[in-house]
């Protein structure tokens, strides 16, 4: 059992690292608001699938690393991911029963929450977005959800994570 758990932890960690690298890949300034927020989506997925084994501390650390990478105030993404994880832990049983399109809507709401926290901290610094444009990543994340779901399910079956 312990071995299985360690194996699962390892795969989850690798998926987060891959997402961190993908999130730091530079894209053009015009498309920068369209980048889907991969990390909260991964948090949603792993908590939904393995609520008992997802480590909140690990998610927190991933958030801090993202802050260091992006040069945002330390704790910004950690805090936003805590909000995401909390909502997901409260509702994962319901989410499992939803159809994929229903889940897509749910992802929109949760990533939107993540963006709200993000925008709130930026406004402390005086650099918040002037319009609702900060919700665009939530929209693209929701669009990407079915695809990400499929890929991660493959991965999960492939690595026998239960």
């Amino acid at each position: 059992m312990a071995l299985v758990k360690a194996h699962n932890r390892w795969v989850i960690l690798m998926s987060f690292l891959a997402a961190l690298v993908a999130m730091s890949y530079p894209i053009s300034t015009t498309g920068i608001w369209l980048r889907p927020e991969l990390i909260p989506m991964l948090v949603i997925y792993w908590i939904m699938v393995l609520p008992q084994q997802s480590s909140i501390l690990q998610i927190w650390c991933v958030g801090c690393i993202q802050d260091l990478l992006q040069g945002t105030p330390l704790g910004l993404h950690a805090m936003a991911l805590m909000v995401v994880a909390y909502v997901c832990l409260l509702s994962y049983q319901r989410m499992r029963n939803y159809t994929i399109w229903h889940q897509t809507f749910f992802v929109f709401v949760i990533v939107g929450l993540h963006q709200l926290v993000d925008s709130w901290v930026h406004s402390l610094q005086g650099s918040a977005a002037q319009t609702l444009v900060f919700l665009l990543p939530a929209f693209t994340s929701a669009l990407l959800w079915p695809l990400l779901w499929m890929v991660l399910e493959r991965l999960r079956v492939g690595y026998r994570i239960t």
Binding site: P73, M79, M82, V121
Partner: peptide
């Protein structure tokens, strides 16, 4: 952890106490 994150954010936005820590941690990036 949420509370710690909030404290970190406030420390980071309003003071520069965390700058040396950040510089040390930035090596992992």
């Amino acid at each position: 952890l949420g509370a710690i994150a909030l404290t970190l954010i406030l420390l980071n936005v309003y003071t520069d106490l965390l700058d040396p820590v950040r510089a040390r941690l930035a090596n992992i990036t």
